[in-house]
Simulated assay, not measured.
Amino acid sequence: MGLYVETRIRADLDDLWARTQQPDQHQRWDLRFSEIDYLPRVEDEPQRFRYATRVTPFLKIAGTGVSAGERERPDGTRTSALRFASPHPLSLLAEGSGYWRYVPDGDGIRFLTGYDYRPRWGAFGALADRLVFRPLMGWATAWSFDRLRLWLERGVTPERALLNWLAELAVRALVVAVACTGLGLESALRLLGPFAASMAYACPLLLSVAVCLALFKAPLSTTPAARRCLRRPPTRVRAPRLLNALETPR
């Protein structure tokens, strides 16, 4: 699979399964989707669903998918697999497939995903995907996994987690903006006398420290962060055989 994300969540396996398998719960924490709806299901066939992502207030890109899950496996793990496709001409993502694995591990659960997709728009789409879209999708997946972890472990709702992230992002941006403005005041301070001049010499160092803290300090414990997730598999992984039983929706 082209993209891989893993997190460890201290939660009940049934609770994690519900938050990830029920559409109304899934769409709350997953940044990649604005809407997820199950379609009427035919007995003994995989579950079909419709998804949508709101790109702008006036543009929503939709697609369809098919999924199947193994809730009880002999080794105690669970697996969910899906295939998806979007016919929307503005969707860079044409079709793809992926899986989720739920692996009990001591007092927690290793929750991991692997997925890949085929971009459209020819050579331009392939380049845009490699430089922009694929890194963005990897970040959004990891950020969403950490938001799910905060919901299950600490009771921070996805909506509150988003507000926490926006607030912290705004504070960091403000610190950088003030620092950049302050660097321009250095020469003016030197004209105000010896004390101000000494402050002017110290100002760049202090502002540089502030910028470094704003850019690199670890996020608060209630703020979701993609950096907390594993982005490469620790060992070689294979897609579940369950994926082979699913056909790409048309």
Rank of each mutant, 00 (worst) to 15 (best):
M1H: 08
L3T: 13
E6T: 05
T7C: 11
R10K: 15
D12C: 09
W17K: 02
A18I: 09
Q22V: 15
H26C: 12
Q27W: 08
R28F: 05
S34E: 13
E35N: 14
D37C: 12
P40C: 03
E43S: 13
D44M: 12
Y51A: 05
R54E: 14
R54V: 12
T56Y: 04
K60S: 14
I61L: 12
S67V: 11
G69S: 14
P74D: 11
T79M: 10
T79F: 05
R83N: 08
A85F: 00
L90Y: 14
L90E: 12
S91P: 08
G96K: 01
S97F: 05
Y99N: 00
R101D: 00
P104H: 02
D105K: 07
I109F: 02
I109K: 02
R110Q: 07
G114T: 05
G114F: 00
Y115L: 06
P119L: 00
G122E: 06
F124Y: 10
G125L: 02
A126N: 07
A128H: 01
A128L: 14
D129K: 02
L131H: 11
L131W: 15
F133P: 00
F133S: 03
F133G: 00
R134L: 06
P135Q: 12
S144Y: 06
S144K: 06
F145N: 06
L148H: 07
L150H: 07
L152F: 10
L152H: 08
R154N: 13
E159S: 11
A161E: 07
L162R: 13
L162Y: 03
L163D: 11
W165S: 11
A167M: 10
E168K: 03
A170E: 03
A170F: 00
A173E: 08
V176W: 01
V178W: 06
A179E: 02
A179H: 00
G182E: 02
E186P: 00
A188I: 11
L189N: 07
P194Y: 04
P194I: 04
P194T: 10
S198R: 11
A200I: 01
L205T: 09
L206Y: 04
L207N: 00
V209Q: 07
V209M: 08
V211G: 02
A214M: 08
L215P: 04
K217G: 10
S221M: 09
T222N: 12
A226G: 13
R231F: 10
T235E: 14
R236Q: 14
A239Y: 07
P240D: 09
R241C: 03
A245Q: 13
P249T: 11
